[in-house]
Simulated assay, not measured.
Amino acid sequence: MTARLQDRYALVTGSTDGIGVAVAQALAAEGAHVIVSGRNTDRGKETVRAIEEAGGRATFVAADLGRGAAAIRELADAANEVAGGALDILVNNAALLIDPAPTAEVGEDLIDQALRVNVKAAFLLTGLIAPAMAARGKGVIINMGSINGLFGSAHSALYSATKATIHSLTKSWAAEYGPAGVRVNTVAPGPTLTEKISGIQDRLAPMIAAMPSRRASTPAEVGAAVVFLAGDDASNIHGATLSVDGGRAAV
């Protein structure tokens, strides 16, 4: 462990599996006290246990952000209680992954669910946490975007739209909160070796073969990007998108 984020408090939404776990572990390895959050209590407690066994600090707060404003406020209140009212880092990572489908076959219920989880939750949670950061004159917000939000992809309109919205919100929030000392940036992963994509690797193979790196990213590599943007080495980076995609968005 090093200490780039020593004594800072970080809330990571959707940190009970996949990329979220790696982000929580990476922040904790740099000294942050991480508030792990998600719907699955067993996985959340396992994430906390793994962090503590590695010498870090973490607290689990159960939250289903798809339930709407009341659940989001409960999470914000609980995180602030853990952090003593001084949350330093917010990572808006929770997201609904959506299977590719023609636009005409995407139902209204799925559209509403995707917007609630992928956009509304981040919007409301930021609105609850960022003003206190601004009042203290410091803080970091990192939104988890996607390379799908950077270019068009057939049969991915809904997911891509939610992530493009997150990228746009990053810029708007950088303009709104940056003058008060709050940095807002995006990490945009490409294909990443999580459990959720293990069953679709054949479908991703052509994309990966066209990437300069010729390989998918690991969750730990995405976590490292979050750590960089959360730390003082990124002290004058505002409104940026850091792609962790093996060069896919570039070429």
Rank of each mutant, 00 (worst) to 15 (best):
G246H: 08
I200K: 12
N92W: 07
L87W: 04
E105V: 06
E195D: 15
P179F: 11
S168K: 05
K120H: 10
L90M: 11
D42G: 07
L96F: 01
T103A: 15
I51S: 07
D109H: 01
N93G: 03
T186M: 07
A69F: 11
G199S: 14
A209V: 10
V251L: 08
G139Y: 09
L158Q: 02
G178W: 09
P206E: 02
G44R: 10
D42K: 13
R214A: 14
L75G: 05
V82I: 14
S217I: 02
K163L: 07
G68M: 11
D233K: 04
M133H: 01
G231S: 15
E105P: 00
A58T: 07
S168R: 10
A240N: 09
E74V: 00
R73L: 13
P179T: 11
L87F: 11
E74G: 12
E53K: 15
R116N: 13
Y159W: 02
D77M: 04
G190I: 08
L27S: 06
V12C: 12
D99A: 15
A71P: 11
A58G: 08
V226Q: 04
I166R: 07
A70G: 05
R116F: 01
T162E: 01
I111H: 06
G152Q: 09
V82M: 08
G20S: 07
M133G: 05
I51F: 13
L65T: 03
G199D: 13
H33I: 02
R203M: 12
A26W: 02
H238D: 06
E53R: 15
A24V: 09
G55F: 09
L11P: 06
E30N: 08
L193Q: 12
G56K: 05
F123A: 13
L97N: 12
V12N: 02
A230Q: 06
T170A: 11
P219N: 03
A135S: 14
A188E: 01
R73A: 14
P100S: 05
D42N: 10
L242I: 08
G190C: 09
V91W: 05
A249P: 00
A114R: 01
S172P: 00
V23T: 09
V222P: 01
S213D: 09
G14D: 10
A161H: 06
A210R: 15
V34W: 13
G231I: 03
A86H: 14
A78F: 04
A154R: 15
S172A: 14
S156V: 02
D17I: 00
F123Y: 15
D42V: 14
R183T: 10
G127S: 07
H238P: 00
L242M: 14
I72W: 05
E105G: 06
E176L: 12
L150M: 15
E108I: 10
